[in-house]
Design a protein around this nucleic acid. Structure first.
Lengths: 228, 228
DNA sequence: AAATTTTGCGTTTAACTTACATTAATTGTA
DNA sequence: TACAATTAATGTAAGTTAAACGCAAAATTT
């Protein structure tokens, strides 16, 4: 039998935000304590002895940013010796998607500050948190090919072009509007309403669409084959 | 700051074996100590303070079964309080694929015995190891749709029907031989040799095929769209 | 009112998928 | 030794899907 193990378990959250203007952003906190004091980092922290990993990551996220998310998906566990200069720490990471508009960020406990950073404009991060974000982005890009996305990221009602922009942003390439619409509509998780978009700029106003939640989550579970 | 954390970190391995006769099997050990003494369980154990998670899982696998695998992929981390009756244990699990023929199993350390169990014929397992196997199987079934598989599971040279059987086994449904072959060959990760199969039973002997390793691993990395 | 922007269809062509039947090369057996 | 059984190799026609486009409609901006 080995000697007493001295490893800590933490959780970290990669929370992606999306707006059609800004594209993808990620929620970071500024560390108030050493190590990496004043560096930006992912929200997260040590797991309590009697809470589940999911509870821990939601709690840490709430404590450090005041953001509440009811669905975070497990991403990967990072456990290389030396990734935290203090102790050996194995971090179980989670990721999730939210619509940042209307969320207020309030730093608390270990965090001096919480803020959204555009993905094209991220600061240098503490620990191996850069690797974690890269992994999360890979996962998101992979997932979009076999699961519908958007429900958590768009307004309840949205013009179709918003969904298209979201896919184009995540996939990082342009999409043919007409073929995209045909493909998406065939899945049946998007419903056309009879309302029209309120314009903010030039152009013909589009019809508003919304998600068919039941179908959306069913397809999310069973998987879709979606090569754009 | 929270009180001192009292959580242990372990690793467990789901090693799938495949033979065309038996189909999928999984490598299990019989526990020599409490809790769950004499129950079958996944090979695994506590991580040492100074070894990586990957090293830990390979070491535990080697110690308990004498099987060496150089590529195990991280599957999921299980950390519900109470999943181990002794302490809180967070287990980072890995899975891998091997060809069981020619591997000798030798139980060592904590294991009284090591053996392959056909997936249709698994015993009741210790801890939440049943959940872990279910997760691994889901992952494998998902993966086969966007990654080539087979390199680790088939002989160096094999008749095409062996690859077909493998896919049919993992997907748990029959496959049209002719369409399957066309599709696979188009990817270019399988090469036809000019050798012929040595027959073990009746039937026309098939040509032998082998993997183009470079292409195989390239496609594994970049992903394939493979709806059979 | 003319130019610009964005939406909403719709068509054509190429590529792929599906379903399916026949011939060829072996082994086992009468 | 022939014939039955088994497994392999191959091709094609019909249906479906994907990709590449063009053009008119409904707004705003100039």
């Amino acid at each position: 039998m080995a000697a007493i193990q001295n490893i800590k378990v933490s959780v970290d959250a990669v929370v992606f935000g999306y707006t059609s203007k800004e594209g993808l952003s990620v929620l970071l906190i500024k560390r108030k304590i050493e190590p990496f004091k004043d560096s930006w980092a992912l929200p997260g922290g040590l797991v309590l002895d009697d809470e589940s990993l999911e509870d821990a990551v939601q709690r840490e996220l709430e404590e450090e940013t005041s953001v509440n998310i009811n669905y975070l998906e497990q991403l990967y566990s990072f456990g290389k010796p030396g990734r935290d200069p203090r102790n050996r720490v194995v971090s179980v990471t989670y990721y999730g998607l939210v619509k940042p508009d209307g969320l207020t960020l309030e730093a608390q406990t270990d965090a001096a500050e919480a803020a959204w950073f555009n993905m094209r404009n991220c600061p240098k991060l503490a620990f191996d948190h850069q690797d974690i974000i890269v992994k999360a982005l890979q996962r998101l890009k992979g997932k979009i090919r076999y699961e519908p996305i958007g429900f958590e990221l768009l307004d309840e009602k949205f013009p179709f072009s918003e969904l298209e922009k979201l896919y184009a942003t995540v996939l990082e390439r342009p999409i043919d509007r007409r073929n995209f619409k045909k493909k998406i509509m065939k899945f049946g998780f998007i419903i056309e309403t009879n309302e029209k978009q309120q314009l903010e700029s030039a152009g013909r106003p589009g019809n508003l669409f919304c998600f068919d939640q039941a179908k959306y989550f069913e397809l999310k579970k069973q998987g879709i084959a979606f090569e754009i």
